[in-house]
């Protein structure tokens, strides 16, 4: 099971954090995960074999990897949805998570969805309303606030999915394939929003199988063979093969 250290729960045995450490909002160390078959003679799949990642305030990190490389598994472990077999996750601040699939309630309206998740984050009604209106204006879904989620287009559902991850002003935002279904305008609005978050000191980690605008990222990590490698300066093997960067 993953050891998960949140905020000030650091063990006493550890030394005082350095100035550089104080900027760290999320750190996953030596994460390992194997999916074991529950059936006899089934295959076990080793997904992560010691992946480590450190995310600091105000940086935009891209995590790239091929299909089945374990990107979503890594993301789920970092947010706490899944336990790793080995390793630790150290969280210093609020986490926002935008999963690849829109994990929303189909028959609630957009407004009701904000209210429900806002309550979960511990926000009061005024804060919820303010966050909802701000994000609706930025991502242009104001006219759909009273629509049910299952009656929205795929792109608009993805906007709500992203907004729910953002509404409580997280210190680190983890996005799993966030721009699937976005039109060009929304894609640009997304990057404007990311730039504004970076300006405010929010860390953003984007997991994607394709990264096609390298200049938007401070660092790019490649997940391959269960571990993460910094390929910011050298280009990833996947990128080389697929010509995506």
């Amino acid at each position: 099971m993953t050891e998960r250290i949140v905020g000030t729960e650091r063990p006493e045995s550890e030394s005082e954090p350095t100035a550089g450490d104080r900027d760290v909002v999320l750190r996953g160390s030596d994460l390992a995960k194997t999916y074991s078959s529950r059936l006899p003679f089934g295959r076990s799949v080793e997904v992560l074999t010691g992946a480590s990642v450190t995310i600091r305030r105000g940086e935009v990190v891209g995590i790239v990897g091929g299909n089945g490389s374990g990107k979503s598994t890594l993301m789920k472990i970092l947010v706490g949805e899944l336990d790793a077999d080995e390793g630790t996750v150290d969280v210093n601040g609020r986490v926002g998570w935008c999963p690849q699939d829109e994990l929303l309630y189909d028959r609630l309206t957009v407004e009701e969805t904000f209210r429900l998740f806002g309550e979960a984050y511990g926000m009061d009604p005024t804060e919820i309303e303010s966050a909802r209106d701000r994000l609706a204006e930025t991502l242009d879904f104001e006219e759909f606030l009273d629509y049910r989620i299952d009656r929205l287009s795929g792109g608009n559902r993805q906007k709500i999915n992203l907004s729910i991850a953002l509404m409580h002003d997280p210190d680190v935002l983890l996005l799993d394939e966030p721009y699937t279904g976005f039109d060009w305008e929304t894609y640009l609005a997304f990057w404007d929003l990311t730039a504004a978050l970076r300006e405010r000191g929010t860390a953003v980690a984007i997991i994607s199988h394709l990264i096609n605008e390298q200049e938007r990222f401070d660092r790019i990590l490649e997940l391959a063979d269960g571990t993460l490698t910094d390929v910011t300066d050298e280009g990833s093997s996947q990128a080389g093969e697929e010509g995506v960067r």
Partner: peptide
């Protein structure tokens, strides 16, 4: 029907 959304809501602090 709501299992995964419930997990997200729970992770959010509900």
């Amino acid at each position: 029907s709501a299992q995964r959304a419930d997990e997200r809501l729970s992770l959010a602090g509900f």
